[in-house]
Amino acid sequence: MSLAEKILQGDIRAAARLMRDVDDGFSSALPELKTLYPHTGNAYILGITGPPGAGKSTLTDQITASFRQSGRRVGIVAVDPTSPFTGGAILGDRIRMNRHADDEGVFIRSLATRGALGGISRSTGEVVNIMDAMGMDVVIIETVGVGQDEIDIVRMAHTTAVVMVPGLGDDIQAIKAGILEIADVFVVNKADRDGADRTARDLSMMIEMGNRKEGEWLPKVMKTEACRGTGIEELMAEFEAHRGFLSASGIMQRFTEEKNRAVFSEMLKERLFNSVNGRILENGELKRIVAGMGTRSVDPYSAVEEVLDRYLLDAGSESA
């Protein structure tokens, strides 16, 4: 029986192994993913992002507990950074979620970024799909601790929560572009700390300043103390409200279309690149181009054009 068939029958080990095959870039994963694809698209995907130490894992733990109370099965993808020097990683998000470890309705997978810069790993989309095919009602993606510009999560999650904490900056930080623009819900965690009201106020002001069109979603600022479970009920209600808004407004459909288009282009880009790059690497052409650029006898603009002219027509026929 193939991994995919086993997964569809509820085999946890098969799912864990396929996730690893995907993460390690094994081409053997492709046929399995093909088999699983028709069984995906049912899970509600929730993104949790924010700076390191904001309480994303603890919040994820509380949110998971709440979903479990209402009987929903939860998959969690928790991303932590890979060392740029050794390639190693400490994946420590599970520590905050240990009480769910032996609950069969929860599946937690830790992933390392492995060089990806957008706050999640390259494999995240596929791992989410596998959890979706496993029959998880909700998949929570917890990004690596992010700063200002790591916003890949927004294309992946139906609802994105940006978790902030008091004391990270003033109201000027709050009007900067990037991560603060992607929130469907703002969470000011550690709300018992000094300055929490100020942080919430700065965020609210930033939201009010925005030029929102009629019928657009207006993010709210929610205050929580994740380690005590304070504010979780209200937060869950806000997630539910956003989910309802997405379906009622027709935005869900648009989101799915855009996401599918992005997934396809991304995959096409990667396969095309690997196919062409693989060949010029193998036949030494890449080396000649780079050497030529060094002496300025070759310019990269013409070199790319020449390579594309030569290989692009039949690039698709070779699998990467």
Partner: peptide, 16 residues
């Protein structure tokens, strides 16, 4: 282990 290039899932204290 991290420095040796492994991915380490650290589950912390008090595990059953």
């Amino acid at each position: 282990f991290r420095d040796a290039g492994l991915e380490v899932i650290y589950t912390g204290l008090h595990q059953t």
